[in-house]
């Protein structure tokens, strides 16, 4: 493999990892509370509040209906307001985060709904507060499932980050398009695809391992 190609791939891989890791962390920090609220404010939830539930659900649905490439361009003013620029790897993190928040919210919601209501009821019977139920029942009981779901989100982020090239975000996807496709260098295309496959395999493997380790069922 030519040295220039190696450098290109390492640089692009670095950008991809940076985009995915940073967006994932930011999206998880907001997405998990969002998923919790979607469950607890729902009908018969521990802090039932249907108006809030409906508003959250509408926002989630609205965000999820916009294709990522359009979202990325549409929120350029917001991106500029948050990170000060609308071009580059850092700028790409804003739409990546924004697109992942509702995704994580829904995934976490699904995981929490799998927690048997009987356990929640037992905690209520012991005099637990809603916050204690979230901390000591919902999250630990659903954690293996949440980890499995978040693994899916990370992999989806790797895919979405390929579109970051559209706003100069760089990354593996961008490399494949610019060198492999536009400059007719199939070896770049193939090398990038191989790196992506390995990356996704590693993420899935790590996610499975962690989920299994946490699962005491």
């Amino acid at each position: 493999m030519p040295a220039d190609l190696m450098d290109l791939i390492i640089k692009a891989l670095g950008e991809t990892i940076r985009m995915v890791v940073c967006s994932m962390i930011a999206a998880t920090v907001i997405g998990i509370p969002l998923g919790v609220l979607l469950v607890t404010t729902a009908k018969h939830g521990i802090t039932e509040c249907l108006p809030i539930n409906r508003i959250l659900a509408s926002i989630v649905n609205a965000l999820r209906s916009v294709p990522f490439i359009i979202l990325m361009v549409a929120i350029i003013p917001l991106t500029r307001a948050i990170v000060g620029t609308s071009i580059g790897t850092t700028a790409a993190m804003v739409p990546l985060t924004l697109a992942s928040i509702p995704f994580i919210g829904r995934q976490v919601e699904t995981s929490l709904k799998e927690v048997p209501y009987g356990i929640v009821e037992a905690a209520l019977a012991m005099g637990a507060t809603p916050l204690q139920i979230i901390r000591h029942v919902y999250l630990p009981e659903a954690m293996p499932s949440i980890v499995a779901q978040l693994t899916t989100v990370v992999i989806a982020l790797v895919g979405e980050s390929a579109m970051a090239g559209a706003i100069g975000g760089g990354g593996l996807g961008d490399l494949a398009i610019r060198y492999g496709y536009q400059r007719f260098r199939p070896e770049v295309m193939i090398a990038t695809i191989i790196v992506l496959i390995v990356l996704v395999q590693l993420i899935q493997f790590a996610g499975n391992k962690l989920s299994k380790h946490l699962n005491k069922k």
Partner: peptide, 22 residues
């Protein structure tokens, strides 16, 4: 006050309802 009162009432269930992660 209800949460405090509940601490004086233990409850057991048909399906045990234990924390599987603990």
């Amino acid at each position: 006050a209800l949460r405090d009162a509940r601490k004086n009432i233990g409850m057991i269930f048909q399906h045990f309802n234990l924390l599987s992660s603990a």
